[in-house]
Design a protein around this nucleic acid. Structure first.
Length: 756
DNA sequence: AAAAAAG
């Protein structure tokens, strides 16, 4: 983790004293190590020299060994917070719980200790993070408020439960009896258990349902998990072998079919399918209606073990695939390295889609699309009184139960486009049923980054809650306990990232077998090398015949691997005339000398509006953030070397306006919505045109204007030109050197300049 | 190179 150490030390520079804004970067760079005792910076967050150092230092001192006892509790609270529920509660509970439990729980010590250390380590800072945590916690609070909207829903329940809870706890700690009753069994589950307790507790229902839980969870889980698992795990290996191979083979071949298919789509009505199905999917098209039960089961049973043989007759592709299988791993490795070394910008054929005319849906309402009143009301509250074109296009087919592929340019409202109908149809499926404790999730939304998962939940949760459905986020980088607690309680909709979801499935804490709708946001990205196989594994776990929805601004045939295996006769939509260049974004390319890069970047970033800077590597993102910060420009970084708390916090800092510059890797390229970013700077040009489109899509959202400037060196011009062509974007190239007017202009400082 | 589980 050498990388982590660097930021730890380096980041501290942000808290180092500043000796005036004019100090050169180099000067400041040397100082940090020694100057940690320097004089504090401005206390005003809005001030350039703002330095929350006092807070930092103070915290450290405050945490005596003795007080370490409260640490875990506090940390637990932090995680609650993050997930958004608990701020209020956390304050109430903590004292009681932590002091009450401690003694009794002494045996917990080790486990807790583990958690702590894990927690600390994860931050990526290693040891220092331990201390960093505290400040972080403080910093998180604001973040809480950030999430709070969703929380408001909990509020009620919470109010109810809290008292109850607090009663529980004391009791528990003293008795050990109750605990003995409940726990023994439970504790085994949870070893995780204890940690489970805490989180669970945080869930208000606990007390109430304490009775139910043990029984239920025992009944269901063991049985279920044993049944499924063996089978599943058994299948999986086989499947995983098939799949990759298959997908590989298929793509080329199906590439031929597809276009045809997609053409049919519009006319899809009835004529086409038969025809198509003869070519491609004889079996499938028939099953389709019944697919929910007929098709899939067959697939799942036949395929996995025997698939390679069985399918062949049925599907032309399969046989070939299975033959190739051995080679598949080679292919993977080979492709991977190739893509790596050469940074191949693979251009996948654009999927043919049924183009929705924006005008045609101008007077459509959410109600008329089939959404219920509660949902429509919440949508209005969310700022969507009437549907955007992509929403008007996809809501109805999703409610019909069709598999849907949708392409809508960045910022066009895709989250609601799948989220609202997903909630509606989940609701319909459950109509009349009681929401049982420990019920299994019915819908799953997958995103490539944690931040995106969080953001999606912020949109979906209010919609879901308005009809009495519950969501939870399942993503890595945070303690599992709270997530597991939510699952035990029962959740209807899961929003998360693949890693933690698979992790919990393997731990049998998450059962996807009743999931009837799956959404892949940024689906093309989720079909890329590192994501494809996890996605395939996850998709195999959901209910047979589950509806699949694939969304992305750059939806292309890269998703074929998933579509071919998991989707049945999907409808494909896009909005006519909505390519990326039709928006409100001004694209610029600056051709610079490499040695001027730092200066030029500093100059561009020194401005009033919110600026998002993209760097290719984590280290460079970190370095740039330091560089800007050292110059007195408040900047923070966002990349995978930061622990999740910092990631969340730093993004929130930009959102809230506490900083105006965020330097990020491509973790922030897709989906992240910050309202008023008006300048995106690509410190390193992207390698892929799709990346260009997504990065630039962080500005100019929902009709706003924005500027995207890409810095390249002379040698890069040609490649850049090609990329822009692929992205179908027009951008003037311009030579630039430090001090040039163009920098002022792009930064939006021309007026100031004129005045001067 | 980045992201996604931990460790």
């Amino acid at each position: 983790m050498p990388k982590n150490k660097k930021p730890a030390g380096g980041r501290a520079q942000n808290f180092e004293p500043r000796y005036g804004n004019k100090t050169s970067y180099q000067d400041l760079k040397r100082r940090p190590g020694q100057a940690s005792a320097g004089k504090p910076g401005s206390k005003s967050p809005s001030h350039r020299g703002f330095r929350p150092e006092t807070e930092d230092a103070g915290k450290k001192q405050r945490w005596t060994a003795q007080e370490r006892a409260g640490r875990d509790e506090a940390r637990g609270i932090r995680s609650h917070t993050r997930t958004d529920d608990r701020p209020a509660r956390s304050y109430d509970d903590r004292p009681a719980r932590s002091y009450g439990d401690r003694p009794a729980r002494s045996y917990d010590g080790p486990a807790r200790g583990d958690r702590v250390s894990r927690d600390d380590r994860r931050p990526g800072d290693g040891r220092p993070s331990f201390r960093d945590d505290r400040p972080r916690r403080n910093d998180d609070r604001p973040a809480r408020s950030f999430d709070r909207p969703a929380r408001s829903f909990d509020g009620q329940r919470r109010t109810d439960d809290r008292p109850a809870r607090s009663f529980d706890r004391p009791a528990r700690s003293f008795d050990g009896q109750r605990r003995t009753d409940d726990r023994p069994a439970r504790s085994y589950d949870d070893r995780p258990a204890r940690s489970f307790d805490r989180p669970a507790r945080s869930f208000d229902d606990r007390p109430r349902r304490t009775g139910d839980r043990p029984a239920r969870s025992y009944d269901d889980r063991p049985a279920r998990s044993y049944d499924d698992r063996p089978a599943r795990s058994f299948d999986r290996p086989a499947r995983s072998d098939d799949r990759p191979a298959r997908s590989f083979d298929d793509r080329p071949r199906r590439t031929d079919d597809r276009p045809a298919r997609s053409f049919d789509r519009p006319a899809r009505s009835n004529d086409d399918r038969p025809a198509r199905s003869n070519d491609d999917r004889p079996a499938r098209s028939f099953d389709r209606p019944a697919r929910s039960f007929d098709d899939r089961p067959r697939r799942s049973n036949d395929d996995r073990p025997a698939r390679s043989f069985d399918d062949r007759p049925r599907r032309d592709d399969r046989p070939a695939r299975s033959f190739d299988r051995p080679a598949r791993s080679d292919w993977n490795a080979e492709t991977k390295s190739k893509a790596h070394e050469a940074h191949v910008d693979v251009v996948h054929e654009k999927l043919q889609a049924e183009a929705v005319q924006a005008e045609a849906v101008a007077d459509v309402t959410f109600s008329s699309l089939g959404l219920g009143d509660n949902i429509v009301r919440v949508l209005a509250d969310l700022g969507a009184p009437s549907p955007f074109p992509i929403q008007a296009a996809t809501v109805a087919p999703i409610l019909e139960g069709r598999d849907v592929l949708a392409r809508g340019r960045t910022g066009s409202g895709k989250t609601i486009a799948f989220g609202a109908p997903l909630v509606e149809s989940t609701l319909r499926d459950q109509a009349g049923q009681r929401r049982e404790f420990g019920r299994k999730p019915k819908a799953l939304i997958l995103a490539p980054t944690r931040e995106l998962a969080l953001q999606i939940d912020r949109t979906i949760q209010p919609i879901a809650r308005s009809v009495g459905l519950f969501t939870t986020q399942i993503y890595g980088g945070v303690p599992q306990a709270r997530q597991v607690g939510a699952l035990k309680k029962g959740v209807d909709i899961i929003i998360g990232t693949p890693g933690r979801i698979e992790d919990l499935v393997e731990q049998r804490k998450l059962d996807l077998s009743e999931v009837r709708i799956v959404v892949l946001d940024e689906a093309d990205h989720m079909s890329e090398l590192g994501f494809l196989e996890p996605m395939q594994r996850i998709l195999r776990l959901v209910q047979d015949g589950a509806q699949k929805l694939l969304f992305s601004a750059t939806l292309d045939r890269e998703v074929a691997a998933l579509v071919d295996e998991f989707l049945v006769d999907p409808a494909v939509y896009e909005v006519a005339g909505e390519d990326q260049d039709s928006g409100t974004i001004d694209h610029r390319v600056l051709v610079i000398d490499h040695r001027d890069k730092a200066d030029i970047l500093s100059s561009l970033v020194d401005r009033d509006g919110k600026t998002l800077v993209f760097a290719r590597t984590r280290a460079y993102a970190e370095m740039l953030a330091e560089q800007f910060d050292d110059l007195g420009i408040n900047a923070v970084a966002l990349h995978g070397d930061l622990n999740q708390a910092k990631r969340t916090r730093n993004l929130e800092r930009l959102t809230s306006g506490r900083v105006s510059v965020l330097v990020a890797t491509d973790v922030a390229a897709r989906g992240i919505h910050v309202d008023d970013i008006d300048l995106v700077i690509q410190a390193d040009p992207p390698d892929e045109y799709k990346t260009y489109m997504h990065r630039s899509g962080r500005t100019g959202r929902a009709g706003r204007s924005g500027t995207v400037v890409t810095l390249i060196t002379r040698q890069r011009r040609r490649k850049m030109t090609e990329m822009l062509e692929r992205a179908e974007i027009d951008a003037p190239f311009q030579d630039a050197r430090p001090g040039d007017d163009v920098l002022e202009e792009i930064a939006g400082r021309q007026l100031a300049n004129v005045d001067a």
